[in-house]
């Protein structure tokens, strides 16, 4: 019985720590995704009419940017409601 209680306590503490860590990194994570999005837009923006480096540089970097492309596509989905995303992250109702 004490063993089970200890286990529950340990799991609860671990979960609470994880929740707090998640909250602590939430804003930074949002900033990181924005930076990754901007980085990808800067490199590949030329194909959509944005100022960007000469396309051969984009072609050289493209093979290593799969993750960034996935972020770009996900960001594009959220583009309809960026304020909503921000408010949600800050837990403002």
């Amino acid at each position: 019985m004490p063993l089970q209680f200890g286990h529950i306590l340990k799991t609860t503490l671990k979960t609470l720590t994880q929740v707090n860590r998640g909250k602590a990194t939430g804003i930074l994570d949002f900033e990181l995704k924005e930076l990754e999005n901007i980085f990808t837009l800067l490199i590949l923006g030329g194909f959509a009419g944005l100022p960007s480096p000469p396309s051969p540089i984009a072609i050289e970097l493209l093979p290593y940017m799969e993750k960034e492309l996935i972020v770009l596509i996900a960001r594009a989905d959220l583009a309809q409601d960026p304020l909503g995303v921000l408010m949600g992250m800050l837990e403002i109702d």
């Binding site: 860590r21 998640g22 602590a24 990194t25 930074l28 994570d29 990181l32």
Partner: peptide, 9 residues
């Protein structure tokens, strides 16, 4: 920074 604060991120 994120990994330092939250290694499970």
């Amino acid at each position: 920074t994120i990994v330092r604060l939250d290694p499970d991120s």
